[in-house]
Amino acid sequence: MELKLALAQTASHLGDVQANLEKHLEFIKQARSQKADLILFPELSLTGYVLQDLVPTVARRVDENDPVFKPLFKASQDLDIVVGFVDEDARHRFYIASVYLSGGKALHIHHKVYLPTYGLFDEGRFFAPGDAVRAFDTRFGRAGILICEDFWHASPPYLLWLDGADLLYLCSASPGRGLNDKEKLESARWVERVTKAYASMFTSFVAHSNRVGYEDGLNFWGGAVVYDPNGELMQQGPYFQEALTVVPLDLNQLHRTRTRLPLLRDERAGLVQTELARILQNKGSRA
């Protein structure tokens, strides 16, 4: 079985949801013309990233009658879509979220679990953290979504793996930083290293979609990637430019890789549970 995956690396208008929606529809049209099955947009692709006090004004509920989501639901009839937005729950808490739309339905919403509040980041000030890491079923197999800082921590990808995800969709708005004499920024090298490691350790497909453009002095570096279950880079989008990178995934590679390397079969989740329970119970624990 094949999944033709389209990685969209877009630049957003900060706080202008309508303008961003129009760009999404253009990219979706492009992806459709290239016969893509799924298009993956970056973190907060509908809103922009450093929202601060704009958070409550750009927040939405995923609803097929919502004027922003309506055209996206419609577009998802023949092409699965993952978009980033600000989700406002019934009690008016705001989340950094990505939704998976397919066949005119929302299959899954992930709320970012880890909100960085260090260095240049201040997400915890404006957003509520999600409290679930769940895999979900799609027409291409079981998948999981994580947003940026979520996969700087090892546990969310691990949990998704145990929950059955063979396809890991990672969405970022990663500000470029750490210029030195290397060919790539430190932030880009770090993300590429860990995403490759997840594909290798979890013998899964890992796709990363990262935005481009600028917000004030911050740059976003793009460079979307897909790694196969052997941890090999399949394709990479350009750095610093808007692009749509379309990659056909041969999903049967999961069968071949896991036959050779049965890390999933041999994984001892029960042992993890036992030890984790002990560590968390231990008063002297550092966890």
């Binding site: 210029l179 030195n180 004499d181 060919e183 790539k184 600028y214 740059n219 610093f240």
Partner: peptide, 16 residues
């Protein structure tokens, strides 16, 4: 180190 990749700096700064 203070040394920078000048191609990367050039790309980011002209884009900025």
């Amino acid at each position: 180190e203070l040394a920078i990749n000048t191609d990367l700096a050039r790309t980011i700064l002209t884009g900025f």
